[in-house]
């Protein structure tokens, strides 16, 4: 498993060089699989019954669990943005899971974690301004206007810390596994890595996904409430 994020294509769009990296392509693959799965569930939904059983139970439990989680963190007022966090949650966790199959996790690239943290920052500003009106802008100048730079840095630190936390954690798993595969003889590369993958990709991935989403929700709620 290479550590580098490879460039698959390089495009020239209006004179600007655009790298289509492995992260972006892997994201598209994961997105395609997730959307296909969503369409499959949507088709299956036509046969969903009043009393859920089997597959329906699994799907409903997953969505219900996330809805309750979002409701507890965001509150009723901001629950309308829960689909965004649902998608982020599913995507980040799927990224970790797909790395089991050798697909480099898109979250092990700062471009992905930075993008999601940027989205959180944009949501903080938009929802803060929408729900608190002038109070949100005013909060940057409290307790005195000279604190504006400090407040601004404080607010900017949020998405930066958010993005680097997830990036660092996911990259660490990738680095450890890469080192393991590079430095160990071939006979210990069968069976044993499954435990590392289970720990770094499934367990660590789930925890980091949960942390990223809950902190994002807290930031947005704090800004908007």
């Amino acid at each position: 498993m290479p550590l580098n994020v490879d460039n698959i294509w390089i495009l020239d769009i209006f004179g600007i060089e655009v790298w289509i990296t492995e992260t972006i392509v892997n994201s598209w693959i994961i997105m395609a699989i997730l959307i296909a799965l969503a369409i499959f569930i949507r088709i299956k939904m036509r046969k969903f019954k009043e009393i859920p059983t089997g597959f329906q139970n699994l799907v409903e439990a997953g969505v219900e669990m996330f809805h309750n989680f979002a409701q507890n963190t965001l509150g009723e007022k901001l629950l309308y943005i829960s689909p965004w966090f649902f998608s982020i949650f599913v995507f980040i966790f799927s990224s970790s899971l797909f790395s089991i199959f050798g697909l480099r996790a898109p979250t092990a690239d700062f471009a992905t974690t930075g993008a999601f943290a940027l989205a959180t920052f944009i949501l903080m500003i938009v929802l803060g301004t929408r729900h608190k009106k002038g109070e949100y802008i005013k909060s940057y100048f409290e307790p005195h206007f000279i604190f504006f730079p400090l407040n601004l840095i404080g607010e900017l630190a949020k998405p930066v810390s958010l993005s680097f936390r997830l990036f660092g954690n996911m990259l660490s798993g990738t680095i450890i596994l890469t080192l393991y595969y590079s430095l160990t003889p071939i006979f210990v590369q069968i069976g044993i890595p499954a435990f590392f993958h289970a720990f770094f990709d499934v367990f660590f991935g789930a925890i980091q996904t949960y942390i990223f989403v809950i902190i994002s929700q807290m930031y947005v709620k704090t800004a908007a409430d």
Partner: peptide, 23 residues
């Protein structure tokens, strides 16, 4: 640029999953 593409990917995924599955 990659961040912006990933942000766009995230938005597309959110819209798709939101409309197809979540809502």
């Amino acid at each position: 640029i990659s961040m912006l593409i990933q942000l766009l990917n995230g938005v597309i995924l959110a819209v798709a999953l939101g409309f197809i599955l979540y809502k």
